[in-house]
Simulated scan of single mutants.
Amino acid sequence: MKQFLATLGASILILAIALPARAETFRAGRLLCATAPRVGLVLGSAQTLRCVFHARGQPPRQYVYEGRIRRVGLDIGVTSAGVLSWAVLARNSRVGPGSLRGNYVGASGNVALGPGLGANVLIGGSRRSIMLQPLSVERSIGLNLAAGITNLTLGARGAR
C-alpha cells in the first residue's frame, strides 16, 4: 500500500512538472466545484459536481458547469460534500461560455481522517486545449483513502 501511494505521488509530481512544459499556456481563470458526498466502493466512486468558472479579464465573467467525477482504483471510506479548486490553463487567453466542457483524465489521490485533502492531475476539455491546474486542492471531511485514475466530465450550464 505504501509503495502504491509513493508511486502515485511520484507520478503526480512528474505530471505536474511535465504538463506545463508541453505548450505555452495562459492562466484563463479559476474553476471552483462543489462536490456531493461520496462513498468509496473499494474499486471506485462517482460524485456529482456543480462548478463555477471565474474567467480572468475585464469585465470578470462567470460560467456555470455541471459535472461528474469518477475514480477507478482504491477508494475506501466516506466523505462529506467538499470543494475542488483548479487554476484553468488554456492555449489562448480567450475562454468563453462552454470552453471547459468535455472530458478530463488523469491521476488522483485523497486522504481524509476528519478534515481531508486531495490532489488531482487532469488534462482534456474542448479539443484537449484546456488544462486544469496540474494539482487541484480538494477539501472535505470524512474517513477516506483513495488513489487511482480519475475522469471528470463537465457540461456547460450558462453564464452568471
Results as ranks from 00 to 15, higher is better:
residue 62 Q to H: 14
residue 125 G to N: 03
residue 47 Q to K: 09
residue 84 L to Q: 14
residue 149 I to V: 13
residue 85 S to A: 15
residue 12 I to T: 03
residue 101 R to V: 00
residue 146 A to W: 00
residue 88 V to G: 06
residue 12 I to W: 02
residue 40 G to S: 01
residue 118 G to P: 05
residue 107 A to Q: 14
residue 18 A to S: 11
residue 87 A to S: 12
residue 36 A to M: 11
residue 34 A to Y: 10
residue 3 Q to S: 10
residue 5 L to N: 04
residue 60 P to S: 14
residue 88 V to A: 04
residue 9 G to C: 00
residue 35 T to K: 08
residue 1 M to L: 06
residue 81 A to W: 13
residue 89 L to D: 12
residue 5 L to W: 12
residue 5 L to M: 13
residue 95 V to D: 02
residue 83 V to C: 10
residue 105 V to C: 03
residue 97 P to H: 07
residue 97 P to F: 04
residue 69 I to R: 13
residue 22 R to E: 04
residue 116 G to N: 02
residue 121 V to D: 02
residue 82 G to L: 09
residue 104 Y to W: 08
residue 44 G to M: 10
residue 19 L to T: 13
residue 70 R to D: 06
residue 79 T to E: 08
residue 154 L to H: 01
residue 62 Q to I: 02
residue 55 A to Y: 11
residue 26 F to H: 05
residue 66 E to R: 15
residue 84 L to Y: 15
residue 108 S to D: 11
residue 145 L to F: 01
residue 36 A to Q: 15
residue 118 G to S: 04
residue 92 N to D: 15
residue 148 G to T: 03
residue 59 P to I: 06
residue 14 I to K: 10
residue 16 A to C: 12
residue 81 A to P: 00
residue 122 L to T: 02
residue 13 L to F: 09
residue 92 N to H: 15
residue 57 G to C: 00
residue 122 L to D: 00
residue 130 I to A: 01
residue 41 L to Q: 14
residue 116 G to A: 02
residue 132 L to N: 06
residue 128 R to F: 05
residue 159 A to W: 01
residue 64 V to E: 13
residue 130 I to E: 03
residue 106 G to Y: 03
residue 30 R to F: 05
residue 158 G to P: 03
residue 126 S to K: 10
residue 21 A to I: 10
residue 107 A to P: 07
residue 148 G to P: 02
residue 12 I to M: 14
residue 90 A to E: 08
residue 28 A to V: 09
residue 21 A to M: 15
residue 15 L to I: 00
residue 120 N to C: 05
residue 93 S to K: 15
residue 97 P to S: 11
residue 73 G to I: 03
residue 119 A to M: 12
residue 21 A to V: 15
residue 9 G to K: 12
residue 115 P to I: 05
residue 11 S to W: 05
residue 89 L to F: 15
residue 69 I to N: 07
residue 88 V to N: 02
residue 75 D to Y: 02
residue 132 L to V: 08
residue 139 R to F: 14
residue 118 G to C: 06
residue 41 L to H: 03
residue 38 R to N: 08
residue 81 A to I: 02
residue 49 L to P: 07
residue 123 I to Y: 06
residue 70 R to V: 12
residue 61 R to G: 00
residue 53 F to H: 09
residue 118 G to L: 04
residue 15 L to C: 13
residue 151 N to K: 08
residue 14 I to Q: 01
residue 117 L to G: 14
residue 70 R to G: 01
residue 1 M to R: 03
residue 96 G to R: 12
residue 44 G to W: 11
residue 57 G to D: 00
residue 101 R to C: 06
residue 3 Q to R: 12
residue 115 P to D: 02
residue 21 A to N: 10
residue 42 V to L: 14
residue 46 A to V: 15
residue 12 I to Y: 04
residue 30 R to T: 12
residue 15 L to K: 09
residue 81 A to D: 03
residue 75 D to W: 00
residue 63 Y to N: 07
residue 29 G to S: 10
residue 52 V to P: 01
residue 81 A to G: 13
residue 110 N to T: 11
residue 7 T to W: 11
residue 48 T to H: 08
residue 120 N to A: 08
residue 24 E to Y: 11
residue 16 A to F: 09
residue 51 C to S: 11
residue 33 C to F: 10
residue 151 N to L: 06
residue 69 I to L: 15
residue 126 S to Q: 11
residue 71 R to N: 13
residue 134 P to Q: 03
residue 2 K to M: 03
residue 20 P to I: 09
residue 38 R to C: 10
residue 1 M to Y: 01
residue 77 G to D: 10
residue 34 A to D: 15
residue 73 G to H: 12
residue 116 G to Y: 04
residue 43 L to Q: 03
